[in-house]
Lab assay of single mutants.
Amino acid sequence: KRYRAVYDYSAADEDEVSFQDGDTIVNVQQIDDGWMYGTVERTGDTGMLPANYVEAI
Rank of each mutant, 00 (worst) to 15 (best):
R2W: 08
N52D: 11
Y37S: 07
E41C: 13
I25S: 03
E41K: 07
E55Y: 09
D8P: 14
W35R: 08
N27P: 02
I31D: 05
Q30H: 13
A12W: 08
A11E: 02
G22M: 04
T43K: 03
T24M: 13
A11S: 07
A11F: 03
D33C: 13
I31A: 08
S10I: 14
R42Q: 05
T46K: 09
S10H: 13
V28A: 10
Y7L: 13
Y53K: 09
D45H: 12
G38K: 01
F19P: 01
G47H: 04
T43R: 01
S18G: 06
D21F: 15
V17Q: 00
I25A: 00
Y3L: 04
E14N: 11
T24V: 15
Q30G: 08
G34Q: 14
V40D: 01
T24W: 14
R42I: 05
D32H: 12
V40H: 04
E55V: 15
Q20I: 14
A56K: 10
A12D: 08
V6C: 12
W35I: 05
D21C: 15
F19Y: 00
V6N: 08
L49K: 00
D32Y: 12
T43N: 05
R4C: 08
D33K: 10
D15S: 15
Q29T: 14
Y9R: 06
T39N: 03
G22L: 03
R4Q: 07
E14C: 13
R42W: 04
Y7A: 15
G47E: 01
D15W: 14
Q29V: 15
V40K: 00
Y53W: 07
V54W: 02
Y3K: 01
A56D: 11
D8H: 10
V28N: 03
L49Q: 01
D45F: 09
Y53D: 01
Q30E: 11
F19N: 01
Y9F: 06
L49S: 00
V40Q: 03
Q20T: 10
D15P: 06
V54G: 01
L49N: 00
T43G: 03
D15R: 15
V40E: 02
Q30D: 09
D32C: 14
A56F: 12
G22A: 04
G34Y: 15
D23C: 03
D21S: 15
D45I: 11
E14W: 11
V54R: 00
I25R: 00
Y53P: 01
D23R: 03
N27C: 13
Q30K: 12
A51K: 09
Q20G: 06
T24L: 14
R2D: 06
P50C: 09
V40N: 08
G44V: 02
I25P: 01
R4Y: 07
T43A: 02
V6Y: 06
T39Y: 05
A12K: 14
S10E: 14
D13Q: 13
G44N: 07
L49W: 04
V54Q: 00
D8C: 13
G22K: 05
Y37R: 11
G38D: 01
S10Q: 13
P50M: 08
A5G: 05
